[in-house]
Write a protein that binds this DNA or RNA. Sequence first.
DNA 1: GTGGTCTAGACCACA
DNA 2: GTGGTCTAGACCACA
Lengths: 119, 119, 119, 119
Amino acid sequence: MIIIDYKDRRPIYEQVAERLEELILKGVLEPGSQLPSVRNLAVELSINPNTIQRAYMELERRRFIYSVKGKGSFIADNENLIDIKKEEVLETLTDVIKEAKEIGISKEQIIDKVSEGYR
Amino acid sequence: MIIIDYKDRRPIYEQVAERLEELILKGVLEPGSQLPSVRNLAVELSINPNTIQRAYMELERRRFIYSVKGKGSFIADNENLIDIKKEEVLETLTDVIKEAKEIGISKEQIIDKVSEGYR
Amino acid sequence: MIIIDYKDRRPIYEQVAERLEELILKGVLEPGSQLPSVRNLAVELSINPNTIQRAYMELERRRFIYSVKGKGSFIADNENLIDIKKEEVLETLTDVIKEAKEIGISKEQIIDKVSEGYR
Amino acid sequence: MIIIDYKDRRPIYEQVAERLEELILKGVLEPGSQLPSVRNLAVELSINPNTIQRAYMELERRRFIYSVKGKGSFIADNENLIDIKKEEVLETLTDVIKEAKEIGISKEQIIDKVSEGYR
DNA sequence: GTGGTCTAGACCACA
DNA sequence: GTGGTCTAGACCACA
């Protein structure tokens, strides 16, 4: 399920976090359900527990999961999981649009790209 | 002209490259003209020559500048400097739109953001 | 009556202790009356008996409850239950005021906050 | 300058961060100046570099310091260092006042404590 | 068993 | 040299 690309320049913990995020957003990992323990996932992926924990910390910071000492880590159970992500993407979008405008890309050109993407 | 923000988490070479790009795109640094030597710019900014070198490499990779051994570095002289940048931004835009679609953001929501940005 | 918030970063035993304290201070659990047994409360809340034990220990340390071997745990029957709590809060307040003073917050600023809180 | 109390239940990284914060707020470590490197401080305190880094990360999150890859870590140079702290303390104060009110401590009692503290 | 902290030490990106 | 990431593995708090 989770594949680490060692050629990728991004750190492993980031790759793991991103992949888990994807599985969460797609519903493969269900809201409220328990994630594999730090140790188990570490063994499964053949990477260090510390690295997994770092990934979990990142997802916790973004409110996708939460960890309970002595119990384990869990997918956030609010239904708004997807909203957290939408917010993040819309923010990125706003930034890109701003930059596009600044360098002289016309509104029409952007609309075209949007139409293309939603074709 | 070039101000480095050490509080910025991005590496210094990236900041230098970005700032030079900006000066190039705005025409402050004219197409075909010579850039300051790595050594001189390093002294001027009080940073390591390696860092400038790295910034120049980055701009060369993106075709904004080119280097001539023994002579120095020069702003690309094709008139389409701005087009290189537009291409890059449109590519980023395409990526973001794709992601937005995937997580269920509607076309209308995006169009709204675009209209907002171009108001 | 006792709801555990797993998203809360504090340990479960602390949450249980705090909630029991609240029920005691509000008089829902009456002075002198018996608390549910560690085992029963554990079953009721679906958490580990060790966790309840730990919560009871904490409340005992703070003199809100006392345990009798072979009989169970009881709410302290002195009438000044609330005074124990007041003492604790006033002590915390003293600490915060001290720190506020040290970093240059004026007496007036604090008085303002107090007035705000009691408005 | 920095003394670690191994009997203290708080993690070492937190103790280090708190102590550094103190030195920063008191002006012992001057705004804009460089902190000891992660490695050097680790050797000096006989603790692991990772632990120091964790402390630095914490201070960076709270904007007291910033780190530059390849250069080092620095005290934030905005003059508002103390304001960051004041904000934090006033927030704590607000919380304590709220709790005090809830358990029936009178406004006068609090004002008394304030006067005591500022005597 | 589970997450949190820590050590000892390696290697990389960057300056 | 400096911070950032990672490994291998230990011990603690908590459940």
